[in-house]
């Protein structure tokens, strides 16, 4: 993987205002069951603007479920999620999709890039979905890829990229539309330790520099170390004393 410094400026992304000041997402009494399995059993969580929050826990503890509810992907059986004054948990699917497209970015462990598209096209997709012209979207995406040190890879397709490069392209795609919150689900889960470190450094530096709130799900303590605080989910609940 080519190492590079975190971008000092991100095209199209407004600079941070006052990170860490106000609650951005507030979740209260979240319950969700998959059949007879209760994935979440009364979770309360507040995420402040501009902070980096790590959600930790063992496999099957409900941490990914919590992330998906916070991001408006899943709807809780009970409880509420309020984002920036909007009650996500009562929105319909289309409204939640629009919110995700406009306000949130996502990074996953693997398989998130469209394999048929070049790195540049992959990054430009959120802008096109948002209605931007192709020319402008490509220009902004190219600039962002350049700032992530990926200019030489812009015409490569995902199968031609290394794991670290692919994750950085995914990160660029997640950030290109200027989200206020970035949700990352095991973003380094498929990478070696060196690549993991480089990706997390870039991720942390970028979100800190521009006041983007980062919610990262991980079971890796080294990844969690980049967070401002961490919560541990176990058996569908946040263990008391762990929300700092």
């Amino acid at each position: 993987m080519n190492s590079s410094a975190p971008p000092s400026t991100l095209p199209g992304i407004p600079p941070a205002t006052s990170p860490g000041a106000t609650p951005l997402i507030t979740a209260r009494d979240l319950h969700l069951a998959f059949g007879l399995t209760e994935a979440l059993r009364g979770v309360d969580l507040t995420i402040r603007s501009g902070e980096i929050l790590a959600i930790m826990g063992p496999s099957g503890s409900g941490k990914s479920t919590l992330l998906h509810i916070l991001a408006g992907v899943l709807v809780p059986d009970r409880g509420s999620v309020v984002y920036n004054g909007q009650r996500i948990s009562t929105m319909n699917e289309a409204e939640r999709a629009r919110l995700r497209l406009a306000e949130f970015g996502f990074v996953f462990q693997f398989g998130q890039l469209l394999p048929d598209l070049s790195a540049l096209d992959n990054v430009s997709i959120p802008l096109l979905l948002g209605g931007m012209s192709r020319r402008e979207a490509l220009a902004r995406s190219e600039e962002l890829l350049g700032s992530f040190g990926l200019s030489s890879c812009k015409d490569k397709r995902p199968p031609q990229l290394s794991g670290g490069q692919a994750q950085r392209v995914a990160l660029a795609r997640a950030l290109v539309a200027g989200p206020r919150v970035l949700f990352a689900d095991e973003p380094t889960g498929s990478l070696d330790s060196l690549s993991s470190e480089q990706v997390m450094e870039m991720l942390a530096a970028t979100v800190r520099g521009f006041g983007v709130t980062l919610v990262v799900v991980t079971h890796d303590a080294r990844t969690a170390a980049y967070a401002d605080r961490e919560v541990i989910v176990r058996d569908g609940q946040i263990r008391s004393g762990f929300e700092l």
Partner: peptide, 10 residues
């Protein structure tokens, strides 16, 4: 992949 795209708001 397409589901992830939809998750991201497509």
């Amino acid at each position: 992949t397409l589901a992830l795209m939809r998750l991201a708001g497509m």
